[in-house]
Simulated scan of single mutants.
Amino acid sequence: MDELELLKKDWQSDKPIYPELSYDDIYKMLHAKSSSIVKWIFYISIIELSLGIALTLINPKIESPAQFPNWIDTLSYFSIPFILVFMYLFYKNYKTITTTDNVKSLINSILKTRRTVKYYVLFNLILAGIFSSVLTYVSYVEVNGGPDVFEASAHFKEYAVLGVVIVVATIGITAIIFGIYYLIYGILLKRLNKNYNELKKLEV
């Protein structure tokens, strides 16, 4: 139970233990908590981008019998500017929240942050789906003799099986990544939503 919940519980009791807080005190508390949450979202995005760049740079050096399409590497590098844009938006949201001085502005900043996080997660899930599909296709074809052998001998049944394998694998991998995002960003957004609901009460 956080500090705000303890104070709210005390207000409902007959014998107050904590000092009564004013409107400004509650606002400052919610403001500080919201700023901290958005700051962590920004930090996590930096870590994620750093890991992504590291894997992209290391990947070409890894020897593998599987031949991935050249456009996969292009897509990896092409996605970096978009992630940088999201990082900028996270940082901008953080700076906006730390400098806002009224409830309405703070509420709007929280709404923008929630929306940015949702778009960021959606963008990464789409990328994960693309990479998962290609990885599954390449791996399946390699196991079955390589592209030349597979394409020369495959019929409708083989392609149907390949399609099912790609769909199942892509859904599974994307679901795992979504679960990771839900644990990381979902927890932060849940706390941010809690602050948002408390601020809406102050606005009344």
Rank of each mutant, 00 (worst) to 15 (best):
T113W: 01
F78W: 13
M29T: 11
E20D: 05
F123D: 09
W11E: 12
S79D: 04
N144P: 02
N197K: 15
Q67C: 13
T136K: 00
K104I: 01
Q12H: 14
L21C: 05
I184R: 00
K39T: 10
D101G: 06
P81D: 10
F82M: 11
N59A: 12
L106K: 03
A128Y: 01
F150R: 02
D101C: 00
D73C: 00
I107M: 03
N59R: 15
K118Y: 13
N93W: 01
I110D: 12
K118R: 14
Y43L: 11
I47Y: 11
L188R: 02
N124F: 05
T136S: 11
P19L: 01
N108C: 07
V121P: 07
E48Q: 10
K95F: 00
F90H: 13
I166H: 02
F90E: 12
Y27S: 01
Y43S: 07
L84S: 09
E158N: 04
P65R: 12
K95E: 05
S133E: 12
Q67A: 14
D24E: 12
Y77R: 07
T56L: 09
I26H: 07
S34A: 15
E203C: 02
V85E: 06
I37G: 04
L127Q: 15
V167W: 11
A154D: 08
S50T: 04
V85Q: 07
V167R: 06
K61G: 07
P60N: 14
K15S: 09
L55S: 08
T100L: 05
I166W: 05
Y120I: 07
I46F: 05
W40P: 00
K15E: 10
T56I: 15
D148S: 05
L106V: 09
N195C: 15
I97G: 00
F178P: 05
K39I: 06
E5N: 14
E20C: 05
F90V: 01
E5I: 00
E48F: 04
S36F: 10
V121K: 08
T99I: 02
V134Y: 07
L51K: 08
E203W: 06
A54D: 03
N124A: 06
A32W: 08
H155D: 14
K118A: 11
I37Q: 02
W71T: 03
T74F: 01
I171G: 06
